[in-house]
């Protein structure tokens, strides 16, 4: 627990400091005689005893202009990867958890429709972490906003605080679809983890992004926003993007193009 707290404190650095740390890390990497070793480490996930690093900030870019009407491959992939029952199959659809969902926006004036997935935005300043009484909601150093299922007491204050309605409470006993690397439990709160289990394995991507790419839509890009050479950083430099409810100044890990 104290390690997690330390991680979230480490992560609360200013953009300047973060840039400095990134630059310093990059320089150090350049000076290291075996940069190949470091790349190998990243590609194969970090060892268990090594803490997540704030040199990395995982993020996602959603290109809403490519997000297809009627397609919910990202939602299905998330449910399969993380073991939550799809809403359509749930006996209690109103109370069923949804880690990611498709939104259809319509401009009432022009009738133009926009499709996009909505999920935990992995804020740099997450309101859910601020309000959590036990510290079960926490932000990992690499930007992932997660819930420690062992210390979540199910008070739902984070759900009151989230401006994106990204979180769900597990309302009933879980069936046997649970995945061994995705702990879940009745009475606790959960949300998108950016497939933390995949990241820690070194996959470097999430189930929803893989599904979107496989379907040929390519509306989702995932990667390290701190690495200027990553695909996501390049895309974010190229395309104008927006943060949902940018007025709240939460510095989101999910950026949308075409909204």
């Amino acid at each position: 627990m104290s390690e997690m707290k330390q991680d979230s404190e480490n992560a609360a650095v200013s953009p300047e400091r973060r840039r400095f740390i990134s630059a310093a890390t990059a320089t150090a990497a350049g000076l290291t005689i075996a940069p190949g070793v470091m790349l190998y480490e990243v590609a194969h996930g970090r060892p268990e005893e090594q803490a997540a690093s704030s040199a990395v900030r995982w993020g996602m870019m959603v290109d809403a202009t490519k997000c297809a009407t009627g397609c919910d491959d990202c939602v299905t992939a998330c449910s399969t990867e993380n073991g939550w029952t799809p809403v359509a199959e749930s006996k209690h659809p109103k109370q069923a958890p949804q880690w990611i969902r498709k939104l259809v926006l319509q401009d009432p004036l022009t009738q133009m429709e926009t499709n996009l997935p909505m999920l935990c935005q992995h804020c740099a300043e997450p309101p859910c972490v601020d309000v959590c009484p036990t510290g079960a909601s926490f932000k990992r150093a690499d930007g992932l906003v997660l819930v420690n299922r062992h210390t979540c007491i199910g008070c739902r204050y984070c759900m009151m605080a989230c401006p994106y309605k990204a979180r769900s409470l597990v309302h009933e006993s879980l069936n046997d679809t649970q995945k061994p690397d995705v702990p879940r439990g009745i009475g606790t709160v959960e949300s998108c983890t950016f497939c933390v289990q995949k990241i820690d394995r070194g996959d470097g991507t999430t189930a929803c992004v893989e599904a979107c790419t496989a379907s040929g839509h390519n509306a989702l890009v995932f990667g390290d926003m701190n690495d200027p050479e990553s695909e996501i950083s390049k895309k974010l430099r190229e395309l104008p993007t927006k943060q949902v409810r940018a007025d709240l100044n939460l510095n989101l890990g999910v950026r949308y193009h075409g909204i």
């Binding site: 309000v131 959590c132 079960a136 979540c152 204050y157 597990v170």
Partner: peptide, 25 residues
């Protein structure tokens, strides 16, 4: 009414002092 009312002891032993809920405890 907590989702895990059996974990009251967790609320009494783990604190996040930025949370208004913690202050209320």
């Amino acid at each position: 009414d907590l989702g895990r009312s059996d974990r009251l002891i967790v609320a009494m032993t783990h604190f996040n002092f930025k949370s208004m809920f913690t202050w209320n405890v």
